[in-house]
């Protein structure tokens, strides 16, 4: 459903993403891993329209979306979460999510948007009462809010950026289960970015590994663990 080819992003003289190509199949969970600074979030920013590609193409459901503005891409059915949660602190939880439900798929019915928002909050396990504000939410709850907002736009493709960051071990397991149930119950295709392998490997169908902006591996999770280049990157045995 998504086809990325030759995707490149240059910041000044620095190549953050270099000639990356991959396909995402409908209904799968694709893991996108790599050490910090390997270009994962930048890849998401390019797909979601927050950044313009320097070169390459991004096709979604047959149409080119590279360089489209972020709100159009969202309305086309691609939702993203931010690695560092970016809640609107002046708004309540339910308002945060209602905005996504209202604008994210060009609906124009506030009551319906509100209902979708309540569903999304219930799904991730956050309160939907009108008075809960975002201050005082912990890391796990903020990650859930990111997810609820993205889901409320009713995407067909979800870009989840480090949904496990800052969580403890049991929270990680629950977050992984949540992503898996989003895929199976809501039939949403997922690209899941994480800088550690960990629980991600249990849930994903396939995995892509980035290093220094380049794709160094694509295949099944169990093969990744034995791939010499991947282990080199992850075990820090690089000779440079």
């Amino acid at each position: 459903m998504l086809s990325v080819s030759g995707l490149t992003k240059r910041f000044g003289g620095f190549l953050a993403v270099n000639q990356v190509s991959f396909e995402v199949r409908e209904g799968e969970i694709l893991g996108l891993i790599g050490p910090n600074g390997s270009g994962k979030s930048t890849t998401f920013n390019l797909i979601a329209g927050a950044l313009r590609p320097t070169a390459g193409s991004i096709r979604f459901k047959g149409g080119e979306i590279g360089g489209l503005s972020a709100h159009r891409i969202c309305r086309n059915g691609i939702a993203r979460t931010f690695q560092i949660p970016r809640p609107f602190r002046k708004l309540s939880l339910i308002e945060n999510v209602t905005l996504a439900a209202y604008f994210g798929n060009g609906s124009s019915d506030r009551v319906e948007a509100r209902r979708h928002a309540e569903e999304a909050l219930a799904l991730v396990g956050l309160p939907a009462d009108p008075h809960t504000m975002t201050d005082g939410l912990g890391a796990a709850a903020l990650k859930k809010l990111e997810l609820a907002r993205a889901l409320a736009t009713r995407p067909t493709l979800l870009l989840a950026d480090e949904s496990l960051g800052g969580l403890d071990a049991s929270e990680m397991e629950r977050a992984a289960d949540l992503l898996e149930s989003i895929r199976t119950r809501m039939r949403i295709t997922i690209i899941w970015v994480e800088h550690i392998m960990g629980v991600l490997m249990r849930v994903v169908d396939r995995v892509i590994v980035l290093d220094h902006g380049e794709k160094i591996f694509e295949g099944l999770p169990r093969d990744a663990a034995h791939d010499p280049r991947v282990t080199e990157v992850y075990l820090g045995q690089r000779r440079t």
């Binding site: 308002e95 905005l99 994210g104 736009t153």
Partner: peptide, 24 residues
């Protein structure tokens, strides 16, 4: 209007607002 909430969101974080489908 819901536009008020959208504008509050925009005034706080344009990029996040745009990522939710708001035409900033």
């Amino acid at each position: 209007g819901i536009e008020r909430e959208a504008l509050e969101a925009i005034s706080e974080d344009e990029e996040a607002a745009a990522s939710l489908g708001i035409d900033v």
